[in-house]
Computed example of a mutant assay.
Amino acid sequence: MTTKSRLSICTTCTSSSAKGATDPRHGRELFDKMVESCAKQDMPFDIRAVECLTNCKSGCSVALSGPGKWGYVYGNLDTGMIDDLCELGRRYAGTNDGIVPWRERPESLRRNVIARIPPLD
């Protein structure tokens, strides 16, 4: 089992501004661009593609999780937020409890929290 934090990206999401499903899906594009961006950096978190976070009305979605940490689901994301997602992932990974203070989150993501999930332990 990994001890790193994880950024899970829904690859089946469609952008909330889209008129219908796309091929590839916007979530797949977000995942591919995050992997490409993170490959150039030593990131303290893993990135994983997942199918459906059941947050379809809130566009592209990701989940942050880690052992013993609060988890978060963020929605209404797009590929223009890659740098901010990297920064949020770094800050999240650097916490003991998963709580990144609101003012320390990248501004473009502050209002995109869909849910906060308590740790399992």
Rank of each mutant, 00 (worst) to 15 (best):
W70I: 08
S58M: 13
R90L: 07
S17K: 15
I99R: 15
K4E: 00
R111E: 14
P44H: 09
V73S: 01
D46W: 00
V100Q: 01
C52G: 09
R90W: 07
S61Y: 03
G27A: 05
N112V: 02
S15D: 15
D97C: 10
G80V: 07
G80T: 08
R116P: 05
P101W: 06
W70R: 09
Y74M: 07
L64P: 00
E104F: 13
A93F: 01
I114Q: 12
N76I: 08
P119F: 05
A93H: 01
C52Q: 09
L77Y: 00
P119T: 09
P67H: 06
N76P: 08
G59H: 04
D32R: 06
A115P: 07
G27F: 01
A39D: 14
L30K: 03
H26M: 10
W70P: 09
D83V: 04
D83M: 06
F31A: 02
T95H: 03
G80C: 08
G98H: 02
K40M: 09
E107V: 11
R28H: 11
L88I: 05
M34F: 07
V62A: 06
V73Q: 03
L88N: 01
T11G: 02
H26A: 14
L88H: 03
M34N: 11
N76E: 07
W102C: 04
Q41T: 12
G27K: 03
N96L: 14
T3Q: 12
S108A: 15
R110Q: 10
G66V: 00
G89C: 02
R25A: 13
V35A: 14
G66Y: 00
S17E: 14
K33T: 14
P106E: 12
F45H: 01
L120V: 09
L30V: 06
K33D: 12
E29Q: 15
M1Y: 07
D121R: 14
C56L: 10
S61M: 02
I47R: 01
V73F: 01
L64Y: 00
R91T: 04
N76W: 09
D121G: 12
K19V: 06
D42I: 11
V113Y: 06
V113R: 09
R110F: 05
T3W: 03
A115H: 09
K57N: 11
R91L: 11
A21K: 13
D78S: 13
G66F: 00
A115E: 04
K19L: 13
M81D: 05
A21V: 08
V113P: 08
I82G: 07
L109W: 04
S65A: 13
R28S: 10
